[in-house]
Design a protein around this nucleic acid. Structure first.
Lengths: 128, 128
DNA sequence: TATTGACCTTCCAATGATTGGAAGCCCTAC
DNA sequence: GTAGGGCTTCCAATCATTGGAAGGTCAATA
């Protein structure tokens, strides 16, 4: 099948499929006589794997690792678990940073009258 | 003072100060006879404002708005509060997305033995 | 006075994942 | 044969930030 159909079937856009090929996340697709990329059902299977991993927030670098583990029948599940746990940890760190921002912002917003008058503790805080 | 000292005093890197000037977040700095950028204490004050806003996760676009409100003595605090509340809302949305990822990942990781054997529910889920 | 080292300048490039567009070729149907 | 839709490559933009190269400036020191 052509790239458009592979995109449709996998949920990965044609643009991204070309990009993943260029960056070597996936191997270069076979080409038809006229130069069109040709995809098998197995290729679509791989693309779907990538799509799901992206939906869970894994970086392309992490997906490279997950793909190689997926294809390695001698993998140890501990390796896969480690990638997942590290990703969870990264997500938690980011959440904590954002939550701290929210805590500060919420307190400031609460102390701001939010009316027609100019005085505003939010600006005061940014200025101070 | 020169850009290096302004960077030191404000916590904004010299690279970023030049970038903020280029993108018109701040007005172009005065220049010395030899072409060096020259900064006043007021400029540093503005840069510090920007730095604090960035630390709270505001985008440059939002900071542009905050800066103009800061300098507008006829502003209504409601406008400032709105910017803050919208930013809080954006942060919360992102946190929720990440938390959902964590929930899925944590469940998968928990069901993975994480030992020397290859079978792994995490990979199964990504594949399915 | 000449040199050295720290600072400044501009310009270009890369990050990460994704999207957009332009110019041009291919394929199918009418 | 022509119209259209899909495919190709290449270039650019997003967002905030960092890095580096090549070259000019300044202050202090030998």
């Amino acid at each position: 099948m052509n790239i458009g159909q592979a995109a449709e079937a996998s949920g990965v856009s044609a643009k991204m499929i070309r990009y993943y090929e260029e960056t070597r996340l996936i191997r270069p697709a076979d080409r038809s006589a006229s130069g069109y990329r040709v995809y098998s059902h197995e290729d679509v299977h791989t693309l779907r794997f990538i799509r799901r991993a992206r939906d869970l927030g894994f970086s392309v670098k992490q997906i490279t690792l997950l793909l190689s583990l997926w294809q390695d029948k001698n993998r140890e599940s501990a390796q896969v678990k480690q990638v997942a746990l590290e990703h969870i940890s990264e997500l938690q760190t980011k959440i904590e940073e954002m939550q701290q921002m929210i805590d500060v912002l919420a307190e400031l917003a609460e102390s701001c009258h939010g009316d027609h008058r100019p005085n505003c503790p939010i600006l005061n805080k940014l200025e101070a």
